[in-house]
Design a binder for these strands. Structure first.
Length: 156
DNA sequence: GCCAACGTTGGC
DNA sequence: GCCAACGTTGGC
């Protein structure tokens, strides 16, 4: 059982949006390592921290669950999509994605600064300098710690 | 809006 | 196969 962190810009798609639509395809990932995590390593039912990037502040907003098996990202075949990939073939799609299901939204976001200041989260990939990966693996201990921080937040 | 860090592309 | 140039991510 692995644990994950998935990033989204809340102005594009937030934890509120996921709570509303319940399940969404994680479209538009165009990084090979992130794709490999979704395609090869995720298993249905595994949990992911839902991270708001490029936000004020950025931070972890809640939890989502891997829903179903890897499927081709439909946007790679859509000419009008910003994620269109003319070199990807329907007979062998380059970009695979998962669906994610809403699990919980924390009372308030756990800001990145809070995560950085917490010695229990030392070594977490998200906190490494220069890392920008939009799908990351998180250790079980770090995952549980962040969820505890999130559940302890007060609504604001 | 700036810019550091990173991944990808393409010339050679 | 190297590496400079370029585009993107994402914190600040």
């Amino acid at each position: 059982m692995r644990h994950w962190l998935i990033k989204s810009e809340p102005e594009v798609f937030s934890i509120r949006d996921l709570a509303r639509v319940k399940v969404t395809g994680w479209e538009g990932v165009r990084n090979y390592l992130a794709r490999n995590f979704m395609r090869d390593l995720m298993a249905p039912g595994e949990l992911a921290l839902f991270y708001h990037s490029n936000a004020e502040p950025s931070g972890v907003a809640g939890v989502a669950r891997v829903h179903g098996e890897a499927v081709p990202d439909p946007t790679q075949f859509q000419k009008k999509s910003e994620y269109f990939d003319p070199t990807s073939l329907r007979s062998g799609p380059r970009w695979m994605m998962r669906h994610f299901e809403f699990v919980e939204r924390f009372p308030a976001l756990v800001p990145l600064a809070t995560l950085r200041a917490d010695p229990a989260l030392r070594g977490m990939a998200l906190l490494q300098k220069g890392q920008r990966l939009s799908v990351q693996e998180v250790s079980a201990a770090h995952f549980a710690h962040v969820v505890a921080l999130g559940r302890a937040t007060r609504p604001r």
